[in-house]
Design a protein around this nucleic acid. Structure first.
Lengths: 216, 216, 216, 216
DNA sequence: TATGAATGAGTTTTCATTCAT
DNA sequence: AATGAATGAAAACTCATTCAT
């Protein structure tokens, strides 16, 4: 509900126009990250946000800070969807998972690919906290479907999150209008793969933060 | 300095060392494409191949030519696997598809992400031809499983090819040793989603070359 | 007592807090000039002074105005020391010169290096006036020692002033705690060089304002 | 005698034009360092050297590498002068020291101010070695004068070296044609201060490498 | 032919200075 | 009057591509 993104120390005056710029920059960065990946030129981000480049740097000291905020913003939106989906008790549990997944795609969850960038710290406290809340919400959603025998027992939250962000990763260097169409198709294949009963056993385990740490 | 292999036949020779350099460069480019995507620094490719940068440019006029060769090389390898898997009649048909998919991952099919780069021409004759042969082989493989009632009816070759390359796309900017592990897990989820009977209807249709053309 | 630094025309209200801010800014700028030279980031000056950057610009229209005030402030302090040293008749004359020099170092006379910056106008009336008073005081001090046969005849005020500021110039980019120690050592060497009888004839003449003008 | 600056590992072919560019860049950097200090814009260095900026970066990976080479080049030239002065036995020993000092000024020893830059590593092996040879040569020169009773007993090599580089440090932001004139005057004052018999005891000790280390 | 060298265009980042609250 | 925010210009550094040996 509340803005969890920023404000650990209460600064004096948030100032309305600065907040608006901040949001604009994050929005522009998210769109460009979905399109070009985490290496999107920051000058272009600023241009799209309609601000000077130095304004971007005032708000976000460097690319890694900006990208963290983008990821946080995406996770928080997705968390909201997951929590609302979990709360809608009347639904068919698998449908709830499925609707959540497709919604997350439309919410540009593919921007999470920024997490895979060099220089990105997946252990930043803000991020860990956001992930915990997200995992809790998605777990609840999946657990309900699992309990109803609709989801395979060995499925994990990470399967959904990482596969979602991989499948929705931008085709680099271009906006692909076809993207949205077949991304939903592939998501559907993945969801069907998550249905119970599993006819095959998954190999390995879902990706975890430790994997990302090891990757450095 | 001298040529290490002596040519015994007269006439304009392909020159053995030049061919070897060419292969080395493609190999290095494939590894770097898997790691960094299609934007891998070409000087670094040359360095890994153990040749001077200008040698790279002699063989491949620019990055798009090199990347096309990388993609061709990957497709050709994968085609070989598909053809062999289709020929092994004794197998369980779905198993054949599955084994092919996992093998393709290990063959760095993720380098196909280069196809999504700006400047890549998916209509180059060499590529069209290679894709046709690849599609034919994979179609045969999938058709066998479809005929045996093991694969959903609305599955298409493109589902496998694009989803495979998306799921195996490198985490940019870093080597992720964990990658191989969870990639196979996600591939398995996808394959399970492709099994018949489908409990849900796929939305849209698989991505085609026309989609890529439209994306430009 | 009176503010000698600025205010040729009497503005309406000096306002106590504004004056305090003004002093703080000059102090901060002097410290940073000694450390980083005349190119110290002005935002950093404001931060150290505990004011907003725009406040700095309200008081000092641009960097050159601020630096002139810093130089004025340093010259005025040094003038005070020179006048007091000259008034203390009981002293050994050379000792008085020497003590003045070492004191000036501790008073951050090194900030005078700002005078050598591009954009600095050494002919600004305020500065000319301050220099005249300073030169008068130091001349008196040196003349006394010269008259007592303790200082070489060809020594000039400029020798002391410029050499002092060069020798005390900050090692750029870093705070050097060792600085203070060896600066005094070198000052002492210089002072010994100024003693009579001179065994060598100085070449050229001391630097003058005309030299600085010619330098533009 | 041989070029000690580079070539620790014997690369294959030095290539004449590359060496020429390398020298040109160092020369340009030295001149600009004398003029603007160690923060001279590297693009400007390249422009003066008559090469593209990237050529500069090919030869010197970053500013600190370039500046180290500049310092090495200056030290090596000065070493040559000191060794020749020490070898000229017929001279008056103090005159030899004096002539060396004035010559070093003309050789742009002021470029040594680059050593005071942030990011400069005074412990780089090449630099330590060059300094040792320089110190040895200057020590010999000063020792001869000390032995002849012409130089105060507590004088040290560092006094000359640091004071020289401080006194000849560029007036930042401008070429000052008057500089050469009064620099020689101040050097002369310093040299006279070094003459025996000392009438005052030097305070502290000369600056050493340890001081620079402590400064970081 | 193979190669190291050269280069200009592009990107990130900093900072003096102006603007709006 | 005081301030935080905004901004464009500059400067370090990278890289694809061309040139000369």
């Amino acid at each position: 509900m509340g803005r969890t993104t920023t404000a650990t120390t209460a600064g004096p005056r948030p100032r309305a126009d600065a907040l608006r710029n901040r949001e604009r920059i994050i929005d522009a960065a998210r769109e460009l990250a979905v399109q070009y990946g985490a290496d999107a030129p920051l000058d272009e981000v600023a241009r799209r946000a309609g601000v000077g480049n130095a304004t971007l740097y005032r708000h976000f000291h460097d690319r890694s800070v900006l990208m963290r905020q983008v990821v946080l913003s995406v996770i928080e939106r997705a968390t909201g969807h997951a929590e609302r989906a979990a709360a809608a008790e009347e639904d068919d549990p698998f449908e709830a998972v499925s609707r959540f997944a497709h919604t997350a795609v439309d919410e540009r969850i593919g921007a999470l690919c920024a997490m895979f960038s060099a220089g990105f710290d997946p252990y930043h406290p803000d991020l860990v906290q956001a992930r915990e809340r997200f995992d809790t919400a998605v777990d609840a959603l999946m657990e309900r479907a699992r309990g109803a025998g609709q989801l395979r027992a060995d499925s994990e939250t990470g399967d959904l999150m990482v596969a979602l962000s991989q499948l929705t990763r931008p085709l680099p260097g271009t906006t692909c209008p076809a993207n949205d169409r077949f991304v939903h198709r592939h998501i559907q294949l993945l969801l069907d793969g998550l249905r119970a009963p599993a006819r095959s056993t998954l190999q390995g385990s879902a990706v975890t933060l430790e994997d990302l740490r090891a990757a450095r």
